[in-house]
């Protein structure tokens, strides 16, 4: 399958953190097209296993997304909402969304109370100003919508921009998730010298519950989280990275030897990459996986992305494909002495 089709299918499936079942079904279908060895764990993460023997390499991309929940239904039928994970309320006014009710999705438009209708300088919208408008009369809204229903940004197909760049909702982290599915397709055609356990994790944006269980249950000898990082504009020195190359992270919460092995794999495959320094938590599944069991050497590969957590997240498709190639090369050329390679000095 073409990677854009994968992204379109994965972004179309809702999966607010903790309610990932629809996107889980979609990634499961994409995995199953490559291998029958597919399963789901207790928190809901979806796994595919390819290859055999050790090392077992866990590669994780999260399938949950930021969004909202219905908290109340107003007298006129409009919905009050709260956020799930890092949503900026200022991106919402004038945005289309879907309310995921028991009876199916309802389209809606996000509105905002004009805080000062007549006077004063406009203020930034805050959550208490935000409303969700389904266009339904109040009795209908009460019949169809329940408090606790999830709301996602509207799943318009990704927009194709110049230079093979695409923009849309939830490319964090469905684009890397699509890369994971693409990786499954690439790996089922080759003889692997190791085992790859590909995992679509739940709840990365909230508790890390998916990554924690994956680190425990996958029996991994090493792990790589596949996520996104910030791309300019706006340019933030050393915090944003050009769209054109994957990013490898170094720092306290990344295993230094695994980083080195990945960097070597990139160099020998001629894949350019940027390096991001991260002192503490990377805000990804890598943080949670590293400390599971006796400790799992964990690295992080990120795809640079503009406008994170908006409905127009933007990435470069060639960069996404490079991450697939990097992971393929890394797995295919797994050093026989991988245990020595990952051994920390001292």
């Amino acid at each position: 399958m073409e990677i854009v089709s994968r992204i379109a299918k994965l972004t179309a499936a809702p999966g607010v953190s903790g309610m990932e079942e629809a996107v889980a079904q979609e990634i499961m279908a994409q995995f199953k097209a490559c291998t029958p060895d597919v399963w789901q764990d207790v928190p809901g993460s979806v796994y595919a296993r390819l290859g055999r023997g050790r090392p077992v390499v866990l590669i994780a991309a999260h399938m949950d997304e930021i969004g909202m929940l219905v908290t109340a239904i107003e007298e006129n039928g409009m919905l009050r909402v709260c956020k799930i994970a890092g949503v900026d309320p200022r991106i919402l006014p004038g945005a289309r969304v879907l309310v995921h009710t028991a009876g199916g999705p309802l389209p809606a438009v996000m509105g905002a109370l004009p805080p000062h209708l007549q006077t004063g300088k406009p203020k930034a919208y805050a959550w208490e100003d935000i409303l969700c408008d389904t266009g339904l009369p109040a009795p209908e809204a009460r019949r169809l919508v329940s408090v606790g229903d999830a709301i996602t940004l509207y799943p318009d197909a990704p927009l194709r921009l110049l230079n093979e760049r695409i923009a849309g909702k939830t490319l964090d982290d469905r684009a890397p998730l699509a890369a994971l599915a693409q990786l499954a397709e690439a790996l089922c055609a080759v003889e692997l010298p190791c085992t790859a356990v590909l995992c679509a994790t739940v709840q990365e944006e909230r508790s890390g519950a998916g990554a924690l269980a994956a680190g425990w249950g996958a029996g991994a000898d090493m792990a790589i989280a596949l996520d996104v990082t910030h791309a300019p504009p706006p340019e933030e020195k050393f915090r944003t990275f050009p769209l054109e190359a994957p990013v490898l992270t170094r720092g306290g919460s990344i295993h230094p030897r695994l980083f080195a092995v990945l960097a070597k794999a990139a160099a020998s495959a001629g894949i350019p990459y940027a390096t991001e320094a991260c002192m503490t938590a990377s805000g990804t599944d890598a943080w949670d996986i590293y400390t599971r069991r006796a400790g799992i050497p964990t690295a992080l590969i990120s795809v640079p992305l503009r406008y994170m957590h908006t409905g127009v997240e933007l990435i470069s498709l060639p960069t996404l494909c490079q991450t697939v190639r990097l992971l393929t090369e890394f797995l295919l050329h797994m050093p026989a002495n991988w245990e020595d390679e990952l051994c920390l000095p001292g």
Binding site: D88, A167, P234, Y307
Partner: peptide, 9 residues
Amino acid sequence: VIGAKAIHM
């Protein structure tokens, strides 16, 4: 698209 600085930054 009209983007903006990510909430994280």
